[in-house]
Nucleic acid binder design. Structure first.
Lengths: 192, 192
DNA sequence: CGCAAACTAGACAGTTCTGTCTATTTTCTT
DNA sequence: AAGAAAATAGACAGAACTGTCTAGTTTGCG
């Protein structure tokens, strides 16, 4: 009886393989059988760790959410003490992400797209991530003493998601710099 | 021998049904058979008008691109002569779209997401639309005598796509108003 | 060692998928 | 009215899909 959330090497390997294939080709485009073949794992092992493909996807999104936010925090911390620099560091992080060899859009936007219904577990999990990131931004805006931190964070979220879509369409990093420049201008307005 | 692009009632009806189902559930989630059953059309009729499901999707995206841009132009023209009002009318158009009962995200962003590979015909068609909209925005920015019209149009594009993603996640229209307010502030900066 | 948990291969069910083919009927045009 | 074009129903192929089940093997731990 495998406890649903027990860490295990097989489970981790399965998730890593599933992540790679889902992110490359899409959730519906990739079948369980392909994941199993690429991972070299038996089907029952998957179904002992996850009740369904859907639960596997939700687990992947939750894991990615944790890792991605941790990565942003790391970048922000490395940016020093200046609240402005810390906020703008998020956009540098974006640019680096876009420039990576395997960048293929935002898995959360793609999950919202592939499972468009509001009540679907995957849709909700994906949106939860976006809300969490917006809250991170709000804290950074507050630290920067912006007049309306929640409002600025909302706007910065729009810029970020728009930039991600643009980077997915162009395969270039320019959108991150555009978004950064706009963010800097808005922050100046909001603190001036 | 059905000419590939001849207009015909059957073809139009097929496209309307396919559009409704694809937009509601997603491209990969909806099978040809369901479209045919809902449209009450024989399979060979579809394959006489479109070489494949992929070509049907491309045709739908191109049609939607034309209609959507025409709809924006209409809104802009109805907004009067003031270049500022004309530009901001795009965001009013957004808000109305988000508030519609059947809003379910942007089909182009969703197509980019479902067919993430850059070279895929559907991916490219979807991105073409975003480029075309950005060019429309650039013209409006130019008319408003913004200092860097292409740059402002790029930023406005980011805001718009970000707002669409947010509206899809929240099912609320607030993101359109946030984007509009930011656009107004940026336009003021760019013309002041 | 010895036992229990975890993992294995692979068959299997039942559905769904895109696309092709045929043979028949409807519809349009002249 | 006659012939051409378009649409029909439905079988069919061949593959892929998720999830279940069984029976045997490996692994880890006390």
């Amino acid at each position: 009886m495998p406890a649903a959330e027990t860490a295990s090497p097989k489970r981790d390997h399965l998730m890593a393989t599933a992540w790679r294939l889902f992110y490359r080709d899409g959730f519906r485009a990739v079948g369980i059988d392909l994941i199993l073949a690429e991972a070299g794992v038996a089907k029952m092992t998957l179904y002992n760790h996850f009740a369904s493909k859907e639960e596997l996807i939700v687990a992947l999104l939750e894991k990615r959410d944790r890792e991605l936010r941790a990565s942003i925090v790391e970048t922000v911390e490395a940016a020093g003490k200046s609240p402005t620099k810390r906020l703008l560091a998020v956009f540098d992080w974006l640019e680096e992400w876009f420039g990576g060899a395997d960048f293929n859009g935002c898995v959360f936007i793609r999950a919202l797209s592939e499972y468009p219904e509001a009540s679907h577990a995957i849709h909700r999990t994906a949106w939860n991530h976006k809300v969490a990131v917006k809250e991170m931004l709000a804290q950074l805006c507050e630290a920067a003493e912006a007049k309306n931190p929640a409002g600025l964070a909302e706007t910065l979220s729009l810029l970020i998601d728009g930039a991600i879509v643009a980077a997915h369409g162009t395969r270039e990093t320019g959108a991150a710099r555009s978004a950064r420049a706009t963010a800097a201008a808005l922050l100046k307005l909001a603190t001036g």
